[in-house]
């Protein structure tokens, strides 16, 4: 179907969906902590705009509640929590080295194409006005996962995790006009608890490893010689563990 045949609001949905995907790519290439958090907040805001537009077009008042939840959680609360923690842990100006950035962005583009392929059976079946954006929502989820896989900084991993969640929420909005309200509330509650737990973990990681670089998390492995280094350094006396 040609874009011009769609109504103004449907076109706006597609535009904002594209912007959500765009923020995913920005996050993929963003090495600095603070801009990463701000980009994540922008993604949440754009997602809320899409949700409100979908609610208006499809006349599903439930979706206004979802949009409000998104704004509270993903635009205000979680970015604020992450911001405060990164200031508290004095890492707001940290930048991590991203290896092969161009390859990474190409990988992201590949995931978008893959998402269009995955979405084929869904789009074929759907009669919804938003079906053109289903593939975009899957792409947002997969790019979030890619972000988690390639980054070694715990904050970036959390942003990837939350961005995946954004993608999932997005896909629920555009493929079925959102899930039943009770489920949405349950998911939002889980996300909130997860965000708080991540905050707790940042502090623990910092205390134990003196860094949020998850590469240092390498003590537990299936190596044949169990923990020779740590024992030599006295990090784990034999009697300590049971």
């Amino acid at each position: 179907m040609a874009l011009a045949e769609l109504g103004l609001f449907s076109q706006a949905i597609i535009l904002f969906a594209a912007l959500v995907l765009f923020t995913s790519f920005i996050m993929l290439g963003q090495a600095r902590t603070l801009p990463l958090i701000f980009t994540f907040a922008w993604q949440g805001l754009l997602l809320a705009v899409v949700t409100v537009l979908v609610a208006y077009v499809s006349k599903h008042p439930d979706l206004y509640v979802s949009a409000a939840l998104t704004i509270v959680l993903k635009v205000v609360l979680i970015p604020w929590l992450l911001y405060r923690l990164s200031v508290q842990l004095n890492m707001q100006y940290d930048a991590e080295l991203i290896r092969h950035p161009s390859l990474l962005l190409l990988g992201g583009a590949g995931l978008v194409i893959f998402s269009y392929y995955v979405a084929l059976p869904i789009v074929r079946l759907s009669g919804l006005a938003t079906r053109n954006t289903i593939a975009v929502s899957i792409a947002v989820e997969l790019i979030g996962m890619l972000l988690m896989c390639v980054r070694r900084n715990a904050v970036a991993q959390v942003i990837g995790f939350m961005s995946m969640e954004n993608g999932l929420f997005f896909s629920a909005v555009v493929s079925t006009y959102g899930m039943p309200l009770i489920v949405e509330l349950g998911v939002a509650f889980d996300v909130l608890v997860a965000a708080i737990l991540f905050g707790v973990f940042f502090i623990h990681l910092r205390d134990s490893f003196d860094s949020l670089d998850v590469v240092r998390l390498n003590r537990l492995s299936e190596a044949d010689e169990p923990m020779p280094l740590q024992e030599a350094a006295g990090a784990r006396p034999p009697g300590e563990h049971s």
Partner: peptide, 20 residues
């Protein structure tokens, strides 16, 4: 302990991604 925190982080991230 550092090991416990590493285990919990792995658990959190892997299960979080999986369950997503």
């Amino acid at each position: 302990t550092p090991e416990a925190i590493e285990a919990a982080w792995k658990y959190f991230i892997l299960c979080g991604v999986g369950i997503a």
